Structure formats: C-alpha cells, structure tokens
Amino acid sequence: MLTRAAMLLLLLQDAAHPLGVGGVGNEVHGLYARWSATLAQGTFPTGDPLWQYPPGAGPLLLAPSVLPGLTYFQAFVTLTLAADALVGYALARGGREPAGAWLWTAGLPLLLHIPLARYDVEVTALAVLALLTLHRSPRLTGTLAALGALVKVWPALTLLGIERGRTTRQAWGAALTAAAAMLLVLALAFRSPLSFLSGQGGRGVQIESLGGTALALARRAGWRGRVRYRYGAMEYVGPHVGLVAGVAVALTAAAFVGLLWWRLRARRHTTATPFDAALCAVLLFTVTSRVISPQYLVWLLGLAAVCLTSRHTTQRPVALLVLAAAGVSALAYPVLYADVMAGTWTGVAVMVVRNALLLGAALLSFRSLWRATVPAGPAIDIA
C-alpha cells in the first residue's frame, strides 16, 4: 500500500512539482480522454496518426468514462490500481513461491508513477492471469491471451511455451475463437476497428530503443541526425535512420525464427516452461523493437513475477536483470529525459546501461530456456 501511495503522490504532483521532465499524466488527461470521446461516438480515432493500437484497446480506454462520479483521469487511475491489485493477488494465490508477488509489489514502483498513467498494467494483468490459469483451464488461458493480444498484441506470446498435444490445441483453439468473437463484436459496435494497421508503417527509431542508443553514440561522434516528436514518441531523423530501422525489423524477424526453432526442438517441459518462454519471447521482441517505451518494463516485470512463482523456473537471474533495467528506465524517463533527448553523455550513458541490461536479459533468457528444454539430439515435432 505504501509503494502505491507513493506512486500516486508522484502522479498527483507531476504537474506542480515534476520529477524530471514531468508530463507523465498528459497521455491520460489529453490523448486517452480524447480517444475515449471519439470511441463514445462509435468509431475508432482513424484520423489521428497517434492511434496505433489493436481494436481491443478501444473498450479499455472507453471504460473510465462510464465510472460515475469521477473524472476520466481519476477513473483511469482507479482502474489501473485495481488491475495492479489483481495482479498482486493472482501472483500471491496462483503460485507456490512468494517471490513472484514480492517482485511485482517491489518492482513496479521502480518505474515511479509511469505505470499509473498507462494502460499496460491492465494488459499485463490479462497476460499474468492467462499464464497462471494454464494448469486449471487451458481454454481460459487461450481466451485471456486472445483478449490481451487484441489490446496490445504481445500477450499472444503467453501461448508459446504451452506443452504440446491436447493442452496446446485447447489453448490455441480457445484463443482463436475468442479473438474472432471479440473482433466481430467490435466490428458491430465501432467503425474502422482495423484502422490501426496503417499506423505502424511510418514509425522510425525511438531514442530509447537499442537502435536509438546506437544513433546517440553516433551523434556524439559527429553524426548529424536530430530528435523529433513523431507518432507519439521522440524519434531520430536523419541520414541512415532508415537503415537502423530496417536492421531492427530484421532482428525482430530473426527473433521470431529463433523462437520457432526453439519450439520445434524443445522436448523437456516443466510447469515453468510456459512462463519462461513467455518472458523470453517478450524480451526478445522488446530489445529488437524500434520502440522501447518505459511502460514496456511493466510487461517484463509481470512476466518475470510469474516465472518466480515456480520453483522450476530458469529465469531467476533474468528477473534480477529486469528489475535493474526497470530502475534505470525511471532515470531515463522521466528523471533524465532532457539529457536523453539532448544526447548528452549522461543521457547516453543511462540508455547504454538500460539497454545493455535488457539485451543481456534477453540473451540469458533464451540460453537458459534452450538449455533447460532442448536435448542434445535433433528432433522435430510441432504437434
């Protein structure tokens, strides 16, 4: 309770006494509230270049407007705190080890007040619940994963490590059914539910990504690029930015191939394997992304916490690296974000450390997952 009270106090003081650049709550006050008003008219914000989210995000952003007696901002934060409490409860009750609940409780405040002003806690709750319900109901796992994927895509990765055979068929069958049903409902309730598909193509290289860190170092060495606000983020523009973005996309494709190859080769399976695989997959897609926003760490903290609910997990060292990365992320934004945008040596150093921690966590996660599940001899079976 004390940690959440401190996070809430930071958020409430953000405008008057900002920590660093401030403005953490602006997305809720302005962007989310504006989108909610558009959604209330039965349409997705198709004319807004900042709208880049799957259609499931619509009901989530509309929900605060229907809570009585509260402003949109107050209702949004209330729902986020409720989702946070649900994650903590599920981790405490759903696992045999208490470390997962402790990691979530102590780790989320490392991101300061950012989690309260983004809807990633709600998305993470769906992913956490999907994983923790797997041993009781694979169909429920698939349904929750599908709902999460329709909000922010990545929760679909919670299905990656499910044991082959009937469990996989039940989970994926339920996921496809739930996704189709929800898409149908959204198509009937709102206009242009798939408009987000055209919003990602123009994305560049965000200054907080691994590619952005490489460009920041190049900038210190004389590269003539600059930082510009585009598509809701601070991105680099200038010579060779397109090449860096292309490399990031290629690395994401390589990560997908690597995960598929692991799936084909994996033979050993424990109760922790789905948890470990989900964390590994999200880490790989995070570090290869053109965009690594600070709220991405909310996802990683939630998945790392799920891993720690099992004594069989291979991801304990990875969870510690994720915790460290969360702490450094808060320095990068909002505390020292002015330095990050300006490309000072302080800002560059912070981003190098944060992204090195994430890259190290991703590589260690994949190696640990591979060694724990793939036997020495070749064997391929995707049933």
Rank of each mutant, 00 (worst) to 15 (best):
A179V: 08
E163I: 06
A156C: 09
A181G: 13
G165Q: 03
T167Q: 12
R166T: 09
G161E: 00
V151C: 12
M182S: 12
R166L: 14
A178E: 09
A178C: 15
Q170P: 02
T168C: 11
W172I: 12
I162N: 04
A174W: 06
Q170N: 08
T168A: 13
A149S: 15
A174D: 07
L150M: 01
G165R: 00
T177V: 14
A171K: 03
R166G: 05
V151E: 02
W172R: 14
T158I: 11
A156L: 13
T177H: 12
T167S: 14
A149W: 02
L160P: 04
R164I: 00
W172F: 12
L176G: 15
G161H: 04
T167I: 10
E163Q: 11
A178N: 09
T167C: 07
P155D: 10
L159Q: 02
A174M: 04
A149Y: 04
L160K: 06
A179F: 07
L157H: 01
T168Y: 10
G173P: 02
R166I: 06
R164T: 02
L160R: 04
A181N: 11
P155A: 12
A174Q: 02
W154A: 13
W172C: 10
T158Y: 04
L150S: 07
A179L: 13
I162D: 02
G165L: 05
T177F: 13
A156E: 12
A174T: 04
L160N: 05
L157C: 08
L160G: 04
T177I: 14
G148N: 03
A149L: 06
A181Y: 11
G165V: 06
A149E: 00
G165W: 00
A179N: 07
G148W: 06
L157N: 07
A149R: 01
V151W: 01
R164S: 12
L176E: 09
L157Y: 10
L159S: 05
R164D: 09
A178D: 09
L176I: 12
G173E: 05
L176P: 08
T167A: 15
L150Q: 05
A174S: 15
R169Y: 08
A156M: 14
G165C: 02
A174Y: 09
V153L: 15
W154P: 10
T177G: 15
L157A: 14
R166S: 11
A178F: 07
V153M: 03
T177Y: 10
R166E: 15
Q170I: 01
R164L: 02
A171P: 01
R169H: 08
T167P: 00
G161P: 01
K152F: 06
W154V: 14
T158K: 02
P155R: 05
A175E: 02
E163A: 13
A175C: 00
R169V: 14
T167K: 14
V153A: 13
T177P: 09
I162S: 00
A178I: 06
A178M: 13
V151G: 05
W154N: 11
A175S: 06
V151F: 04
G148M: 01
R164V: 03
G165F: 01
E163P: 03
R164C: 05
L157M: 15
T177W: 13
V151N: 06
A171W: 05
L176H: 11
A171E: 01
A181F: 09
T168V: 15
